[in-house]
Design a protein around this nucleic acid. Sequence first.
DNA 1: ATAACAATTGGGAACGTTCCCAAAATCTGC
DNA 2: GCAGATTTTGGGAACGTTCCCAATTGTTAT
Lengths: 342, 342
Amino acid sequence: MKRVTIKDISKHLLLSTSTVSRALTDDKNIRKETREKVLEAAKELGYKPNPSALNLKSGKSNSIGVIVPEMITPFSSKILEGIQNVLSGSKFRVIVAQSNENPETERTNLLMMEEFRVDGIIINLCHETYNHKLYQEILDRGTPMIFFDRIPPSNLDVPKVLVNDQSTSTTMVEHLISTGKKRIVNLMGPKTIRNAIQRADGYKKALYKYKLFDDDLVIETEGTSFIHAKEAMKRLIEKGVVFDAIFAFTDSLAIGAMNYLLEKKYRIPEDVAIASFSGTELSQMVFPPLSTVEQPLVEMGETAVELLLEKIKNPTSKNRFVQLKPELIFRRSTIAQQSHQK
Amino acid sequence: MKRVTIKDISKHLLLSTSTVSRALTDDKNIRKETREKVLEAAKELGYKPNPSALNLKSGKSNSIGVIVPEMITPFSSKILEGIQNVLSGSKFRVIVAQSNENPETERTNLLMMEEFRVDGIIINLCHETYNHKLYQEILDRGTPMIFFDRIPPSNLDVPKVLVNDQSTSTTMVEHLISTGKKRIVNLMGPKTIRNAIQRADGYKKALYKYKLFDDDLVIETEGTSFIHAKEAMKRLIEKGVVFDAIFAFTDSLAIGAMNYLLEKKYRIPEDVAIASFSGTELSQMVFPPLSTVEQPLVEMGETAVELLLEKIKNPTSKNRFVQLKPELIFRRSTIAQQSHQK
DNA sequence: ATAACAATTGGGAACGTTCCCAAAATCTGC
DNA sequence: GCAGATTTTGGGAACGTTCCCAATTGTTAT
């Protein structure tokens, strides 16, 4: 299975490899007729450039690394869709790795990508601080990185894409309040995730404003899976906390909580209303469908690559911080009637 | 950001590049002390081999392409987990592409991977026949391919991994029958997917056996998303078909159908029991949780890479066809009581 | 027709490795 | 102590490309 190389073309046409290369790279220093002849022969012989040779020459791998904490929910899938949208047809390939919510795995993935000399990395962290030093090192060694969704603390000056977690959370919690709920639980994710804290802050702001805040209402989960939400709900109920609504950190947590409550014969939303934050199909796949903060995930992916391409093109460009606008979608988990449904 | 090369080491130690290379590749023709000296220097200088150079030399890219129809459900994610399990720590990198259930995109992905000279491709088809010729061409040009889950017709002699769709479906449908259901709908996927037909065959076998078959009970969906299931259910009900159970092609379809019915105030499983086929977390994320045929997805991924590595090592090895054993899990969507739940 | 210049082409180094072959160093046994 | 065998090292081609520089061809103005 010998592959056609530039040399094969040059032999076939009795031209030098330089000339063939010129034709293929659209160099101006070549006669039109020659170029056409070469392109024709290339097509006829089925020539495909050898990426490794290109990479070796240029020192660039023409590939972009994407690291995500998980792919169990459609969240990352949507982001990837956005990334592919921008990159399809370009010279860049995408290499994807999952950290499985484990900072050590994230570390391995990062080093693997760097070793592979990707032209840049797009990453959604799984722990706010654990690999902080490594990010800086990789950046210093010259690989640009873009952060989205779960971003690092602000003392790391890097391009970022995300939505305004705090103010959007406030709005969503105010919606719960507007439906008459007074005892709203914040099912927050682990504190090692920045957004969990941001969204909790937004929640608190709303509760303070309406003088509804109570420490007992805030409960932290140990992880981000629906199972962790069930555990947390169990704890909450055993503790005897009274509540009539839940604002959850993500769709998965909201779903775990909702199922636990349905099992215990609670009515949603009459007994307990549930709102979440995410933007994945999951919120529509359960019953009743969830009111949620729908983040523009595809757009987030697109934006992230664009920021990266900008950085690759011009490494000294300023680090931009793009904030996207999420949409609040009200569904039956907070509103009993059929109206208002998307 | 100049990277450390073998030449840097050789200059640093006043050795030839050949010797350094020998030390690094664990060649026996080298003095122990020399090797140690080199390895130490390599570590000290932070040497990392340049993959492109390796690839150029060997003609291999040390990467494996994985093509999946979608990543909205956790199905592909589980498969990837298995693939990563086997490959992590190996020299192979994984490149993932989604076909978005579009055979044309699948085609582009395949050609892209071939152009990138992946060492092999692991694929889950999105259409049984559309790219049939291309598979053969790629195989003929020397890139091994492994098929899993949705496989091509048997006239393509390739390694495959899957579960026994037909007989397992029969068993699951018999479970529905055993709970007293008599009008069992087969919510089958599109006929362009082999497994949809296989599972439908298994379904039919069970219904024939108990003399319960009725053409009206079989309904094809236009796609594999939960929305397609809702559409199909709407059609079915408008047609006036009476039914008391559903056997769905996948979790997503089952969920779509279930939500549609919950919305219409059907009780699950009392009015309509629902069973599906898949093995993803989705079946546990909904309420009531779904009885489903749980496929060993991680194992399926692992097996697929193993078959591929076998093929890469020995291209003329026989094409194996591995059939994995799924597990039937009975949950509340078919059994009202709390017992029997996993 | 010819010098001067522009357009086009060819030769060959370079990217970072491996590996074949030859050279050098070391080790045998007598 | 030396021929011959063996171990260890170095030189340099090769993988497929690009790109600099030089060589060739074509064009223009005198």
